[in-house]
């Protein structure tokens, strides 16, 4: 079975990446898809809490350090189609994992018997986070209509693009071109990713073609969380347009999720919601999620004129 890997990131903490990953996973599983969730949140893995299971003892650290096979660290959830793999603070230790190991990890992930593998990248723009993001089939950025969230999302996307371009040039034995450009950035008048790309493209036709090709293939899916009104939805369209026109990448505004006032009551309060233990749910499973998941699965986006 060929599995599709979705990475859910976006820089800022608290935008709802974990609950969205959980919600997407449960939705797909409830619709008969085999789904694996991977919690790769550095700061605090807590997908298990949203799935109402106890913190598992085995984690990805066992895979990387003790060479445990992946299927030994897979955890069952309340839904038969849904399973969980947990990372922890040691898993993505800055110095512990080489790029080749990450590639190996992704090869192993694909071998899990799942149609969808959803990775919650957590907050931050650590290299391991960025690399996992870039290796995924679908690069999902969760943001919220707050200036700090949007700023962090831009930074996250820019960092990912920067990493991707460097990697592509490296794969074509053009590592020094990028390195020298960046090293002498003051002389070369490189101030940001845009001027960096501009400088590189001028250096040779080969580099220019490589970069243009990468930009065209660099596709981001945006999910806007915690929206409160129609104006907030417009922010999503603005983010999309600005990213397309500023960076030259491909962006889908896949959908939004409404702000829910009583969100935490669902998890903090009594367990009445879980009376039916065979059906997992989250407070975000609603009409909007339905449209959102369909857009993601079918690679469509929000209707421009009837969002």
């Amino acid at each position: 079975m060929k599995s599709e890997i979705w990475a859910i990131g976006g820089g800022k903490g608290g935008t709802g990446k974990s609950i969205i990953t959980t919600t997407l996973g449960i939705y797909l599983a409830n619709h008969g898809k085999k789904v694996s969730l991977i919690d790769a949140d550095l700061g605090g893995a807590n997908l298990h809490s949203f799935l109402r299971i106890k913190k598992p003892k085995k984690s990805l650290t066992d895979f990387f350090e003790k060479k445990s096979p992946l299927n030994e660290i897979i955890i069952k959830t309340g839904a038969p189609n849904l399973q969980l793999i947990v990372g922890d603070i040691n898993t993505f230790n800055p110095t512990s994992i080489k790029y080749t190991q990450k590639l190996k990890f992704f090869r192993h992930i694909i071998s899990i018997n799942s149609e969808f593998i959803l990775i919650d990248l957590g907050a931050g723009t650590h290299l391991n986070t960025i690399d996992s993001f870039l290796l995924a089939d679908k690069k999902i950025v969760v943001t919220a209509p707050q200036i700090t969230s949007i700023e962090n999302s831009y930074n996250f996307i820019k960092k990912a693009l920067f990493r991707k371009i460097n990697r592509i040039l490296r794969d074509h034995q053009l590592k020094d071109v990028a390195r020298n450009a960046w090293k002498n950035r003051n002389v070369n008048e490189i101030k940001d990713i845009k001027t960096f790309l501009y400088y590189l493209k001028k250096s040779s036709v080969q580099v220019k073609n490589l970069i243009n090709k990468e930009l065209k293939n660099f596709k981001i899916d945006i999910i806007l969380n915690q929206i409160r009104d129609h104006n907030d939805i417009e922010i999503g369209f603005s983010i999309k347009s600005l990213l397309i026109k500023y960076l030259g990448i491909d962006v889908n505004f896949s959908g939004y999720i409404k702000y829910i006032d009583s969100f935490w009551d669902y998890y903090n309060g009594s367990q009445t919601h879980t009376s039916n233990k065979n059906v997992l749910s989250t407070p975000l499973l609603n009409e909007d999620t339905h449209g959102l998941v369909n857009n993601l699965v079918e690679d469509k986006q929000l209707n421009l004129f009837n969002p």
Partner: peptide, 28 residues
Amino acid sequence: SELNRAYDRIKKIYSTESIATIPIDNEF
């Protein structure tokens, strides 16, 4: 009518300040 609406929206994005434009104001 879709063209008109899209034009109004995009004109607004690039002619006014919003929480989407401010974070990249310096670069863009």
